[in-house]
Design a protein around this nucleic acid. Structure first.
Lengths: 226, 226
DNA sequence: CGGGAATTTGAGCCCGCTCAAGAGTGGTGG
DNA sequence: CCACCACTCTTGAGCGGGCTCAAATTCCCG
């Protein structure tokens, strides 16, 4: 999956400009038309949906390299929102641009589909968690999943990673209440599986956590760069 | 999104052959390498994942026109299985074929991404259900979603559609137990929202069910044909 | 008409929920 | 430098939605 020189050049001019937003910002509003497609360059974000009474479900977390707004590009109205966890920097692609990319650089179009399919894997795993795992298994599998994803993009320092999300984020992504999420995290921590403090997560025993989670996903694969 | 004559011709030769399988067949095995990409021509199928102790989560149902195996094409090993609900007929695309499609017919490549994004919408909605809706809301939203999807592909007869899945399928897709799924379905039926019998679903009051489900998704859109 | 699968219903329990309150932890301004 | 305030995390108590276990009943299909 090596990009050609020509492709790299094209990508450069294709990116119309970059964009920075502060922590907590709304990147894409639920139910609003959205014109733009982004790549997340740095920081953490998340996609979410809400019900009319305010219950919120986080669909998946977005890490550097992920797309923001691919689905929205395909619809008229965004079926979900995107929020920034930390301060984020994004690279904007123009609307015309995506179509041109497919036409002039089908190799890159293929890569786009590849990345989108990869994100779907993550969502599938989350759906399995929320639907069939109990609270302990859910928390364990989320920790393992995020750890592996961060590691693959080269941002892990040993067994420690930046971990900017709070317990409310975790609860909303696992379909649990805040209180029960806290109790479950605490129990796993006391059992020596992991540590969270100061915005860092340390995995003390990743293999054991994977066993707890019944999480046997294939290795995360290196993605094409766009 | 009109396909050109040339594209249509290409699609024809691109389909290497079609394939029929009986009800209950395994189309793609979980954890096995999969060589093929299919389009579902007729019948119902479903994607699923299982945990090692047998708990199963249905990720989404596949209706005629949906892709089978796009993700698998992108990975080395299929991260999920695909099963047939009814007898199904599939059109097989060869492995080389997909890459050629992107290279020679970027318009079709764009359509592939479009369809994949649409399927992701469905999964997102399911994740919202399983994570944040109670049992009644979940069942209601599944009925509404399937009804709308069938309607959009032109297979609804008035307010009645073929409904080949059983309560175990529904339970596995909603993250509920079989028993509780039955009780919930029965309650909704007694309240006059819907009827299921003889493999048919009739929506007696779709608007009311949508309200019960807190389901306000945008209209299903017509998809490009491949 | 026999038999396996799917559906239905009841009884009782437990995991995860809600409610409530306290303890850190920063950030801000006087 | 400290008082204050908002946000996050923590812990306890008690309840209830959805679970498991168990047993009919109905539905197909050969």
């Amino acid at each position: 999956m090596q990009n050609s020189d020509e492709e790299v050049t094209f990508i450069q001019q294709f990116k119309t400009r970059s964009l920075s937003l502060p922590a907590g910002a709304v990147i894409i509003d639920e139910g609003l038309p959205s014109e733009d497609l982004y790549t997340l360059y740095s920081g953490w974000a998340f996609r979410f949906k809400t019900l009319s009474d305010g219950r919120r479900q986080i669909l998946n977390f977005l890490l550097p390299g992920d797309f923001v707004g691919l689905q929205e590009k395909m619809a008229d109205v965004s079926p979900h929102g995107v929020g920034a966890v930390t301060a984020v920097s994004l690279c904007r692609f123009s609307r015309i641009g995506l179509w041109e990319l497919y036409r002039n650089h089908p190799g890159l179009g293929y890569d786009v589909t590849w990345i989108a399919a990869n994100q779907k894997d993550v969502i599938d795993e989350n759906l399995l968690s929320v639907g069939r795992r109990n609270a302990t298994e859910r928390v364990a599998s989320l920790l393992v999943q995020l750890y592996k994803r961060v590691k693959v993009i080269g941002l892990a320092k040993g067994s420690t990673i930046d971990f900017p999300i709070n317990q409310q984020h975790i609860a909303d992504s696992l379909g649990l209440s805040l209180v029960h999420t806290n109790k479950t995290l605490r129990r796993l921590m006391k059992m020596g599986f992991h540590e969270i403090s100061g915005g860092k997560l340390t995995m003390c025993n990743p293999a054991a956590l994977e066993r707890v989670a019944d999480y046997y996903a294939a290795e995360e694969r290196v993605r094409p760069l766009i």
